[in-house]
Design a protein around this nucleic acid. Structure first.
Length: 436
DNA sequence: GGACCATTTCCTGCTT
DNA sequence: AAAGCAGGAAATGGTC
């Protein structure tokens, strides 16, 4: 394979390892905040995920719509081949498949469920819906917003609850797929990527910008492996802050398609409620609220549905009836006390080895600091608060409230720069030394 | 159940 | 033009 070939298909490789690109952020956020109908969201969320994964923006959407609309007898595009799983025969290949020239993202039936991306999960759902002629209106939004690692954590009862009449089928389908894939996929994928990067060092430099990010850690049979690709800063963290994943061996990771790179979440697990350090679990609780009452025909996105609808001010209600089950599985306790925004910010700053370039001190002695990745910090804060629609704009409003309480002081004329005030604590070097 | 706190969300206007 | 800042207003979730 030539380097140029590799370059031209980078996004396809990346699609199997990353998801950090947020092209659908606005649409996604607008949906969560009620500006766009759920029906539109269904399409957008799929597209959003796909944009992050591939240059082909339409295939999964096409598949989903195909499923919803199709009444004939054509073969479904997501239908697994009748033949044996092609990829599982080759333990060297996991989320990517080599053809003569390219790297091609694999389908759900070619992967262990634990390795499924959100797209793969959607494909799997789509396939089963089609096979069973299931009415999609029964489906919970929660089922459309998780990746395989989360899916695999769900109990049979949760699946039954989530998929209703289709639950039994989905459960068995999942079990079948698990049984078919006894390969240590991620482990080999990790090694494979390492080898690829050895062979193609250019890859490290062509991933600049915000287009995508490599995973900095990979979970292998319940253990994360640090990325040792030697990249730092915006692209990849070099591996500090590893945390064990959840008990069953699968890390739930971030659940928002537009949110912070899950690697960042792990890097900052000390700040993350899903990490053992916090004892809670991260989830997109709001998503499970969003039952999309769509039938197949209703999936057509009508123009008027794009019009933003005005929503009420303030924080939207979190839970609705019917979603408790999924939330139950994800959420343990309420937010621990003492986890205020300014403390969250402080904790990022005082763990420089783990803050992954999110923020930095401008003047440590004076308590002046700067956001380097404002949206990423906001996303992380959103994860902490189980709020997938958090933005820097909102976070900064909360920050500005601290001026009055003198927890923060204004720093005029400098963007993204704040200063701790006299009512903040725990950031001064002296204080920290005492604390230790 | 209500008061209160700490945000969250939306908004308009302004500045960089 | 886009992003960020400022701050009012209204709303929520959690705690007491």
């Amino acid at each position: 394979m030539k380097t140029s070939d590799f370059t031209s298909h980078t996004s396809q490789l990346v699609s199997t390892f990353t998801w950090a690109r947020p092209p659908g952020r606005r649409i996604y956020t607008d949906l969560l905040t009620g500006r766009i109908s759920n029906r539109f969201f269904f399409c957008c969320s799929i597209q959003s995920d796909l944009m992050s994964a591939s240059n082909d923006l339409s295939s999964i959407l096409t598949d989903a719509n195909w499923t919803m609309y199709q009444t004939g007898t054509m073969e479904h595009p997501l239908t697994p081949p009748v033949t044996a799983l092609p990829v599982m025969r080759d333990p060297q290949l996991t989320n990517i498949q080599f053809t003569s020239d390219f790297l091609v993202p694999l389908k759900w039936y070619q992967l262990a469920p634990q390795c499924w991306t959100k797209q793969n999960v959607l494909e799997w759902i789509s396939y089963n819906i089609e096979e069973s002629k299931f009415d999609a209106s029964m489906l919970s939004m929660a089922s459309c917003s998780m990746d395989g690692s989360i899916l695999c954590q769900l109990s049979r009862e949760t699946l039954l609850s989530m998929f209703g009449p289709l639950g039994e089928r989905m459960y068995h389908s999942l079990q079948d797929q698990k049984a078919k894939s006894g390969v240590d996929d991620l482990s080999t994928t990790y090694d494979l990527l390492n080898n690829l990067l050895d062979d193609f060092p250019e890859f490290l430099t062509m991933s600049g910008g915000d287009d995508f990010k490599l995973l900095s850690t990979v979970i292998v049979n319940g253990e994360e492996k640090a990325n040792d690709f030697g990249i730092s800063g915006d692209k990849v963290n070099t591996g500090g802050g590893l945390t064990p994943s959840s008990d069953n061996g699968y890390e739930s990771g971030s659940t928002s398609p537009d949110s912070l790179d899950s690697s960042n979440s792990r890097m900052l697990s000390f700040l993350n409620p899903s990490s053992p350090e916090y004892g809670g679990s991260d989830s997109d609780a709001e998503l499970s609220n969003l039952h999309f009452p769509l039938s197949a025909k209703e999936l057509k996105v009508e123009e008027e549905e794009f019009k933003p609808c005005k929503r009420s001010r303030g924080r939207p209600r979190k839970l609705s009836r019917g979603s408790e089950y999924f939330i139950e599985a994800k959420k343990n306790k309420h937010t621990p006390r003492g986890s205020h925004l300014w403390e969250f910010i402080r904790d990022i700053l005082i763990h420089p080895e783990q803050n992954n370039g999110l923020m930095r001190w401008e003047d440590r002695r004076e308590g002046v600091f700067k956001f380097l990745k404002s949206e990423a910090v906001a996303q992380l804060w959103g994860q902490r608060k189980k709020n997938s629609s958090m933005t820097y704009e909102k976070l900064s409003r909360a920050m500005r409230y601290y001026y009055k309480r003198e927890i923060l002081e204004r720093v005029d004329g400098r963007r993204l720069v704040y200063k701790f005030g006299k009512n903040s604590s725990g950031w001064k070097l002296g204080e920290m030394a005492v604390a230790m």
